[in-house]
């Protein structure tokens, strides 16, 4: 397996070079395409139902984006509602009393998650990789995947029990060591910390899989050569292991940065309360509240569009930077 090759996830930028070179006339080309389609009819037969599904379920609702520039009146429908230009965006960026705080919360939580949450599984993977007792390693890995499989609703329920200041085990232990009980889920000071920590706890084990896969494909001869050169474990990690992981890290980082405005709706929605709205209210929870509870669907769509566009640009930018740095990009 060639690990330096990034997964070719995208198709953008690689339009079909396989079709016949454009030498003949326009009609010849159409004929050629027709022949190609007939020849590959079974492949196309497989593909088309899925394309139709995409047409219906992914593209079908896209016309709704126009709501971001309209005032939605139910009776007029989406097409018939009156255009209002950039009104909703203007409101968000100039008038809304909440939006600046919500943007700030989203970005802060997301950045914490990248800074602390992203490296955590890499470190754990490196640790797993060093363990020589195969059985222990396997059991430990299995256990570490466990929380990944549960929903935030389940984990929310568990966290409420564990973190309770009066009956929770975490505060019980803190008190043994002489600390005052801390209300992790209820106070602004600790809420983000709780978010990040619980997210790491949930995903750290699962996150190691992809890095372990990359690690297992490193040529063992490289380590042997390094040992002969007198490199210790630390140096081997720095000079062999980490560089070998770089392509994977690069791609995952692009994906993560592209989603920087996704600070984790499921998690926050199932853990927050009015007491911590000030630090915990993010774009998605805001959208949920104003859309589904306050009936402001146009504003909701505007926020969603803003999120999509920013996310898309971030992915392209991250992709560009990573290519500049000499790594294989995503597209």
């Amino acid at each position: 397996m060639n690990t330096t090759n990034a997964p070719d996830i995208g198709g953008i930028g690689s339009p079909h070079k396989k079709l016949k070179k454009s030498s003949g006339t326009w009609i010849d080309n159409v004929k050629q395409i027709g022949r190609d389609y007939v020849k590959n009819r079974y492949l196309l037969l497989l593909l088309f139902p899925v394309l139709i599904w995409y047409g219906i379920f992914a593209y079908g609702p896209m016309y709704g984006v126009q709501l971001a520039f309209k005032d939605f009146y139910i009776k007029e429908g989406i097409w018939g509602s009156p255009w209002v230009g950039l009104k909703h965006f203007e409101y968000l960026f100039t008038a809304s009393p909440q939006f600046p705080q919500i943007m700030k919360n989203t970005i802060i939580i997301s950045f914490y998650q990248i800074i602390f949450g992203f490296p955590a599984p890499i470190i754990l993977a490196l640790l797993f990789n060093e363990i020589r007792f195969t059985f222990f390693k396997k059991v430990a890995q299995t256990i570490s995947y466990l929380p990944h499989f549960l929903s935030w609703i389940v984990i929310g329920g568990i966290l409420i029990t564990l973190l309770s200041p009066s009956t929770g085990v975490v505060n019980y232990i803190l008190e043994i060591f002489g600390f005052d009980p801390v209300y992790f889920l209820g106070t602004e000071k600790y809420f983000r910390f709780t978010l990040i920590t619980s997210a790491i706890w949930k995903e750290i084990g699962w996150g190691t899989i992809i890095f372990l896969a990359a690690l297992s494909s490193i040529d063992s001869q490289m380590y042997e050569a390094a040992v002969i050169d007198g490199a210790n474990r630390w140096k081997q990690t720095i000079y062999i292991t980490l560089p070998a992981l770089m392509p994977v890290i690069a791609i995952l980082l692009i994906l993560r940065v592209g989603n920087v405005l996704d600070a984790g709706f499921d998690q926050i929605f199932n853990l927050y309360s009015p007491a911590v709205y000030g630090v915990a209210d993010i774009l998605d929870t805001y959208v949920y509240r104003i859309g589904l509870q306050e009936f402001q669907f146009s504003l909701t769509t505007a926020v969603g569009l803003f999120k999509n566009v920013v996310g898309f640009m971030l992915v392209l930018t991250a992709n560009f930077i990573i290519k500049k740095m000499g790594q294989e990009g995503l597209y």
Binding site: Y54, A58, P61, V65, L67, I78, G291, F297, G304, V315
Partner: peptide
Amino acid sequence: IIITMFFGGGLIP
């Protein structure tokens, strides 16, 4: 297909 990873129509549509 990939475009759909980035853009969607929103809740109501």
